[in-house]
Design a binder for these strands. Structure first.
Lengths: 210, 210
DNA sequence: ATTGTTTTTTACCATTTGGTAAAGGCACGA
DNA sequence: TCGTGCCTTTACCAAATGGTAAAAAACAAT
């Protein structure tokens, strides 16, 4: 029942695989899947095109490997939302971490955005198996908090969508934000403050005002 | 100083230009600029590839024509935000209209999203000349309302970003939403209600709670 | 019908792109 | 030092792609 021997990868393999992934992230996030070329990725990685193919089974394989590898760390902050903590604080902490990720890893955000906008043709299954369970779990957690009266009533699913939408907006629509707010730093401080206030009000204000 | 005579386009020209734009919207919004091919667009439009080129000066020209034409109607709801109306109502009306547009014209939303994510290479100038002035104008309007004490204090720029982010999310990330909320209709009613509550609370709650 | 103009098709072309074959280089243990 | 197996390069290729040339067809005006 054992599959292949699966020899452990050499130092060179590890180094080059990582270089390829880095390069692919750069290129795929900027141009989308079909817009990216193996030549670009090879250039960026400082190696030849056939050498890419030696390490990965083609363009699609690189893309899938990237998406799958990044999915884990991208979801980590949500996974860490803890039953034990203070509800408001847990959620706001999540919001803050997502904002930080948008600022520090815009390429990852754009990579996912590209993939999803185009219908998630290569990530669909992974969404089902990895994202959906986590999403459902955290929705249940939030719903529990609300039922205990520790948060203002809100639809947990929609809440999480809002958080994703707003935080990722700053990474994905960077180009637009920069046009509209030409200050250097693109007003990150203002963005942080605004987003935090927005969700704080949503989650604490007891009633929907008229 | 007159340019070309600019004869008025024939009926056939109008019809075919429109057919091409429709087809291009479909294809570009699904695959992004580089992912779209003239053959696909020609197929979708029911005509031959050289015939496309007869009507438009190449792939880039089609794309730019699409973006520029759509920019107007896409911005219309924001333009209609009126100084004379009730502040909260004006903004919530804008939010509702943006939600409707996301539901009814997801292709347009995705077209813009693709373009912006990839750095707005073909729409940059248009952002400066058409979007920025309108954005600045409406930010000033909102700032005025806040100074008159008719809205809770908020950064108008960030407010508009949030509105865009959330409303467009439902169109752009449709694939993800459908995986996470498999109900038919993708929970549009819940989405509408949630978004309205979110911004209502932001704009009316007088103080930032602790 | 005839002529001039607009529209469409057919047949190409050069470049780009993902991918392959096969030989050459290189490190490293015996 | 000599293989042996891992890594890299060179030289290709077939398909796809944006675009062109020019003839044919459709149409409009006389």
């Amino acid at each position: 029942m054992v599959g292949e021997p699966a020899k452990k990868p050499s130092r060179i393999q590890i180094r080059n695989r990582r270089r390829i992934m880095d390069a692919a992230l750069e290129v795929f996030s900027q141009h989308g899947y079909r817009g990216a070329t193996l030549d670009q990725i090879a250039d960026e990685a400082g190696m030849s095109k056939p050498n890419l193919i030696y390490y990965f089974d083609g363009k699609a394989a690189i893309h899938v490997a990237l998406l799958n590898a990044l999915m884990e760390e991208w979801l980590a902050p949500l996974a860490e939302m803890d039953e034990g903590g203070d509800p408001l604080n847990e959620i706001l902490t999540y919001v803050r971490r997502k904002m930080d990720m948008s600022r520090r890893y815009p390429r990852e955000s754009k990579l996912f955005a590209n993939e999803i906008i185009q219908g998630a043709p290569r990530m669909g299954p992974h969404l089902e198996t990895r994202l959906k369970p986590l999403f459902d779990e955290k929705c249940a957690l939030i719903r529990g908090w609300i039922e205990e009266g520790r948060l203002a009533p809100t639809d947990p699913q929609q809440l999480i969508f809002s958080i994703w939408a707003i935080t990722q907006h700053y990474a994905d629509f960077e180009a637009q934000v920069r046009v509209l707010i030409p200050n250097e730093g693109a007003g990150w401080d203002a963005a942080h403050a605004h987003v935090e206030t927005l969700f704080r009000k949503l989650l604490t204000s007891p009633e929907t005002p008229s």
